[in-house]
Design a protein around this nucleic acid. Sequence first.
DNA 1: AGTATAAAAACGAATGATCATTCTTGACAA
DNA 2: TTGTCAAGAATGATCATTCGTTTTTATACT
Lengths: 194, 194
Amino acid sequence: MTDEYRSARRAEIAEAAQAAFRRKGFQATSMAEIMAESGLSAGAIYNQYKGKADIVHDVANRISRQRLDELDELKAQNPLPAPSAVVRALITAMASDLTAPAQLLQVWGEAATDPDLAEMCGKVYLTMRQAHIEYISLWHQREHGLSPEEADAVGVAQAPLFLSAVHGYVVQSTIVPDFDGAAYLDAMEALLPR
Amino acid sequence: MTDEYRSARRAEIAEAAQAAFRRKGFQATSMAEIMAESGLSAGAIYNQYKGKADIVHDVANRISRQRLDELDELKAQNPLPAPSAVVRALITAMASDLTAPAQLLQVWGEAATDPDLAEMCGKVYLTMRQAHIEYISLWHQREHGLSPEEADAVGVAQAPLFLSAVHGYVVQSTIVPDFDGAAYLDAMEALLPR
DNA sequence: AGTATAAAAACGAATGATCATTCTTGACAA
DNA sequence: TTGTCAAGAATGATCATTCGTTTTTATACT
């Protein structure tokens, strides 16, 4: 069997598991449910994954990776809009998959007790933050004529707060019954500095 | 047995369960671990709670309630600082219990798949938001001379973003290895409008 | 006060269900 | 024919919950 086949099958399993996890959570989802969702047998699944924990990690990885992929697309695309517009684009991309925010929140919640997951989430965050630091710095240099050092300092200070806009969106869209995403994005762009 | 005794024992159990949940998560914590942590037997625990789900809900409630209690203390106390200073106080109060942010994140993650928990979290959020709307509105009326209607509109728009500062703190302090809470708070006050 | 009695509460071993994982068996591709 | 993969029943462990028993507590009575 070819490598290509292997990874295709892993994707098949991971997608089924992701759907099941989304419904019941990581811990409360049984292997039997993943088997039912994927239509595969225990043997087929254990041929691809070491165990349930292995699947959980792979799915969490996928969910996080998707956010980084969106970041890459943004980087390749834009001229130089305000940082808040970048955050808007990031959130819009994420929210285009309606289940993505809740899934991210599930992963973060799990990371609170799983060191491996915490490390993965931390790495993803650091990549995100670094990209924002560089972007904010660049934007302040061009737009306000700051020196690279001054601009970097601004980026380091502000990047975590721009990312908080993402975190707030994730939490509120999952938890708040009457959450209005569009109004949230408008308020963010009005509030964050330019 | 008096009602007082009953609630004292429930508190005893809930505190033990909370400690265990913090370590292993809600689902992965077994009744045996709650028994060990509390030093009580199965019978004693099942006399107070209907089952594990009952304990989970009670503990999640406690974790959320503590945040509302802090809000009440703030309301009783302050003259009229800027809204961002209120958010700082809220976060500082929360972070004074070092495990509180991670616990909140666990609850929110669980709420993504548990409708009862989601409803509870939603209610807590809505009272938080309402308090902030009123506060921001009041502050804008006094500080910038806005009419009540104008000021209310500002409050409705901005409150979710002020709360995002809390959500961002919760997520980042749990997930980010080198998170600097003090710098985060300073940046927030510098960034949010006055 | 001291003791008997009844009720409540706690104990902890037993139970039955669920679950992750393994392993034997059969099918299929090379 | 041989080696790989999938199937699915079997296994053994874990877990929430129950329940018969013991202990404690409150109360009534002498």
